[in-house]
């Protein structure tokens, strides 16, 4: 039962942990660019400031979708951490993205539309890979439950290394990191779907980004099975890898992203699935 207890604490603390991860990431990124960078608690300062801003709403549905964007991700994360069905988790995660896409389309801003288009395309890029990874896990653990993977005696990484590589290749798309950050490319669409949010409603979108970090790092942790040390090592590795990648690459356009993701990441995950099903 202690596992459930830890999971519940993690779920409650998830936004704070995510904020810390985001703050750390901003510091690390600044240091990699030879700057001092903001304090680690900077995301929380942003949080407090955004709570104080005057509320400007495009229309009520837009603001509602923004808040539901946050709530649905927290729910998906809850299901995930409590060891729920992986496929359900992935589709709840899809719902979270679908809500922000709807919000993007519901305004008249052209950049918001473009951002929604690009977010939809990035779903096409990473969602199949996530599903293939879930199916591979099913092949090994015999269950779609995430808890089965968390309690698996041997780390899944050893049996599905290619899937891990595929996950590493799609995580930048999901977390909107440099080579694949077309969805919120600041110089092109100035934030994309987030463009029209302001004040406390932007806060929901902003905080959902923090939760997304926790979600992604939990996905990484899944590969360690019951080996906690390996899990922490994998998460650290992913953290450094993501920031190094972010700082070493330019943004590609969405066609190149789709081609790369469906060509390389998807095939890696698929080969991994074939190997798992044969052995």
């Amino acid at each position: 039962m202690s596992h459930t207890f830890i999971a519940i604490i993690l779920i409650i603390l998830a936004p704070f942990l995510g904020g810390l991860v985001y703050g750390l990431e901003r510091v690390i990124r600044a240091r990699m660019q030879r700057r001092i960078g903001p304090p680690v608690l900077q995301p929380f300062y942003d949080f407090l400031k955004l709570a104080d801003k005057r509320r400007m709403v495009v229309h009520s549905a837009h603001a509602f979708l923004g808040i539901m964007h946050f709530v649905s991700l927290w729910y998906a994360l809850g299901v995930f951490l409590l060891g729920g069905d992986l496929i359900l988790v992935i589709f709840l995660h899809l719902l979270y993205t679908a809500l922000i896409i709807l919000a993007g389309y519901s305004t008249r801003s052209i950049f918001s539309h473009l951002g929604a288009n690009r977010t939809a395309l990035s779903i096409i890029a990473y969602e199949p890979v996530l599903i293939l990874i879930a199916v591979s896990m099913y092949m090994i653990t015999g269950s779609f439950e995430a808890s089965a993977a968390f309690h698996h005696p041997q780390p899944l990484l050893y049996k599905m290394p290619l899937a891990f590589v595929a996950l590493l290749l799609v995580l930048p798309i999901k977390l909107k990191k440099s080579p694949f950050d077309v969805a919120e490319a600041h110089q092109e669409v100035t934030g994309g779907v987030e463009l029209e949010f302001s004040g406390i409603y932007y806060e929901a979108v902003y905080t959902a980004k923090w939760l997304d970090y926790i979600f992604s790092y939990t996905l990484v942790y899944l590969f360690a099975g019951s080996n906690i040390l390996l899990g922490i090592g994998l998460m650290l590795f992913t953290f450094i890898y993501l920031n190094a990648l972010d700082n070493a690459t330019a943004r590609v356009n969405y066609k190149q992203m789709l081609r790369f993701s469906l060509g390389v990441s998807f095939s890696l995950a698929f080969i991994n699935l074939l190997i798992n099903s044969l052995s």
Binding site: Q33, R34, R35, S178, D246, A250
Partner: peptide, 16 residues
């Protein structure tokens, strides 16, 4: 050019 290509680190480096 580097910044608008989405290459933030190169922007910082060149500016430095």
């Amino acid at each position: 050019v580097a910044e608008n290509s989405g290459f933030e680190a190169l922007f910082m480096k060149t500016m430095q």
